[in-house]
Design a protein around this nucleic acid. Structure first.
Length: 312
DNA sequence: TACGCGTGGGA
DNA sequence: TTCCCAAGCGT
């Protein structure tokens, strides 16, 4: 685990004279704030299983909490265990995913369930390396399940934590597009050593980022650690790399067309012909065919030359 | 490493 | 209206 790696002295010009971050005050105030302001999300309930937590983390990848709550509840009622999801028809899995977006996640979640059945006897593994090896589980999700499902120490670094810690300790408005070693080192140094407190710390920082230290309009007046914030102390400097973070184009993309094709197939009661799908694509024929073929290549759609259905 | 991958709501 | 963003991952 990362925490067992020796941390070399920071190669700054004056490490010894740099005042340490008031770690104890930061921890105490943030944990108290979390106890008061934490949201009662269903996957945080005492009754939630590790599998439920894992499903929530996959659904929450790039998708807001408010849109996940409903589908998560229905999903867990229908497929309460990895084995039940692994045995489900893929088209039903994709329909249950609904409009959460990025439907490849649904496919990978089912593959993940199958891997848990095959490799771990149907039990969500506790070792972070075993979690990381599962389909659809990356470094964030492996750490999150370790912390939130198993209550063990992990360094959880999602977009919320990166933004909060970046502001608090580095004084930057927004994190860079890619996680840096320095960020990971700083985050690790702030995670408490014991399992129970570290899990609470991780979720508390995430919650602060979601509710107070938001990307667009941070509510600094409500922040319990504003007097410790380097970004605030520096006068809220603007994001230096705002120009570089160009927004992805959307209108007219294959992604948009794929979304329309998937929506049509989700809503259809039977197979759709290639002609029908080209018609709903709302694009040129070439893009429609290319998008449909890519959905087939991804395993989200199957069919012969004539007609197409969701899943395998 | 940079890019492709859905969807919908708020500023 | 347009743009930005929301608990990333795989290639």
């Amino acid at each position: 685990m990362m925490s067992t790696d020796p941390v070399p002295p920071a190669p700054t010009t004056a490490p010894a004279s740099t005042p340490p971050h008031p770690r104890a005050a930061l921890h105490a105030r943030l944990l108290v704030w979390f106890d008061v302001h934490r949201r009662d999300l269903p996957w945080r309930a005492a009754t939630a299983t590790p599998w439920g937590v894992l499903v929530s983390e996959i659904m929450l990848q790039q998708t807001p909490v408010v849109r996940v709550e409903g589908p998560w509840t229905a999903w867990l009622e229908r497929w309460p265990t990895p084995a039940s999801l692994a045995a489900a028809p893929t088209d039903e899995v994709l329909r249950a995913w609904g409009r959460l977006g990025y439907p490849r996640r649904a496919l990978r979640l089912q593959q993940c369930a199958a891997a848990i059945v095959e490799r771990h006897d149907g039990v969500v593994p506790t070792a972070e390396a075993d979690l990381l090896a599962l389909p659809g589980v990356g470094s964030y999700t492996a750490a999150a399940v370790t912390a939130f499902a198993h209550g063990r120490r992990a360094v959880v670094l999602d977009t919320n934590v990166r933004r909060v810690l970046g502001r608090l300790t580095a004084g930057t408005a927004l994190p860079r597009p890619h996680l840096t070693q320095e960020e990971t080192r700083r985050a690790d140094a702030l995670v408490p050593g014991d399992d129970a407190t570290s899990a609470r710390w991780n979720i508390a920082v995430m919650e602060l980022g979601a509710l107070v230290c938001t990307a667009r309009s941070p509510r600094c007046d409500d922040c319990p650690v504003r007097d410790l914030c380097a970004w605030r102390a520096a006068g809220y400097p603007a994001d230096e790399h705002a120009a570089a973070r160009r927004t992805q184009a959307w209108h007219g993309t294959d992604r948009q067309v794929r979304g329309r094709l998937m929506a049509a197939l989700r809503d259809a009661t039977g197979p759709l012909t290639r002609e029908e799908l080209v018609a709903v694509a709302g694009s040129g024929d070439e893009q429609a065919h290319r998008s449909l073929d890519s959905l087939v290549a991804d395993g989200l759609v199957s069919g012969d030359a004539e007609s197409f259905v969701l899943g395998r």
